[in-house]
């Protein structure tokens, strides 16, 4: 049980982490403007974490490596672990996956909005703060999307995906 040891910091639902790590990278591929977001021809999958969640972030990266090997479909990818505090407008990334943070979510949202970065959130509550996607294990698995944050010229997901998601106003 690879996530067994992670419980010490923030309380992360192990299953939910796994589900998100399995599904989010595939969603990235459904952006019609993905090519514009590649960095050196690669998808950069940034995991933003608070200090105490470093292990969690690491484990996610490990899991993704096992799960996806080298590629998301036909794209090369690279997982980038970065502390919330180190996030900046200068960084180049395709995706930011935000773990829990009490203060830094808004910061992620702002950067993403400006730079047209696709954002995923562990916690659904962070969508209100401007992150784009989240996923919940309810009676069925539900993909949540913040409608407001879709209004970005640089992001254009295929309609079939949009028809699958649950919108949050």
């Amino acid at each position: 049980m690879i996530f067994a040891t992670l419980v010490h910091s923030h309380n992360y639902d192990q299953l939910l982490l796994k589900a998100q790590a399995s599904i989010f990278p595939k969603i990235v591929l459904l952006d019609k403007k993905l090519n514009e977001k590649l960095v050196d021809g690669k998808i950069i999958y940034t995991i933003a974490y608070e200090e105490e969640d470093y292990f969690t972030a690491q484990e996610i990266a490990k899991y993704m490596k096992i799960n996806f090997k080298e590629n998301f479909d036909k794209y090369n990818y690279k997982v980038n672990l970065i502390k919330f505090s180190n996030l900046s407008y200068d960084m180049n990334t395709t995706v930011i996956y935000a773990l829990n943070s009490n203060e830094n979510i808004q910061k992620v949202a702002n950067i993403a909005k400006k730079k047209g970065i696709i954002t995923f959130s562990y916690d659904i509550n962070n969508l209100k703060n401007g992150l784009l996607f989240s996923l919940m294990l309810e009676k069925t698995t539900v993909l949540y999307l913040n409608k407001e944050n879709l209004d970005n010229e640089k992001i254009d997901f295929i309609d079939s995906l949009l028809q699958m998601v649950n919108f949050i106003d």
Binding site: K147, L150, D151, D159, L162, Q163, F167
Partner: peptide, 10 residues
């Protein structure tokens, strides 16, 4: 319809 709905909604 879903497509229209989606776009109307968005």
């Amino acid at each position: 319809k879903p497509l229209i709905a989606l776009n109307v909604y968005l």
